[in-house]
Amino acid sequence: MTMFHFFNCAILTFGPHAVYYSATPLSEYDTLGTSVKAALVYLGTALVKLVCLATFLNVSESDSFDPYQELLKALIGFIDVAGLYFALTQLTHRNISQNHKFQAVGLGWAFADSVLHRLAPLWVGARGLEFTWDYILQGLEANANLVLSISLAALGSLMWLRKNKPRTLIPIIYACAGIVSTMPSITSYLKRGLGWHFAEVVGFELFVSLVMAFFSWQLFSTCQKPSA
């Protein structure tokens, strides 16, 4: 039964990535290589982030939400954006369309994140006899994260790869990208600053991810129009 539960949670955590890959045209253009490269970039970014966190962050005396520390953490969080920038612009991909490139990068990014952050706790925890909702919620969080990563990649590709975008939209794009990339800090604030429960945080993340996905989709399609 416990293996069963682990299996369920794994489906919830990693299933959407596979579904996304097979259901969208990504699978037809064989963009797996791009995703793998993006995942490797994520790995490198995670290492750099780890080193930065360990170097710059103090051991805080209290359990409360410390704005200065959180600001530092948010800044370190922007290393992610740099990693994504590198993955989108510097990597020599096969000649695939921008449209598919950002999806492949976002997907690889989200998948690597899920594997690194969720596989180990899942393997250790969900196989145990004890039942908690945590692993199901964690799976849902992985879904939200997938949506956010793809949105961020979409916004990133708008920022860095598309040259002829409407001027009026640029601040909106940057604002959206800012919101999406500070999501980890926002959730950490909700968790520790406001004392939200994990379920509420996950609900919020799902909601925000859907909203952001909608925005970035709209932005992307409006930017697409002049060229199309």
Binding site: L47, V115, L116, P121
Partner: peptide, 9 residues
């Protein structure tokens, strides 16, 4: 959080 990444490795 970070340690988990290492563990996964």
């Amino acid at each position: 959080d970070s340690v988990y990444s290492v563990i996964a490795l």
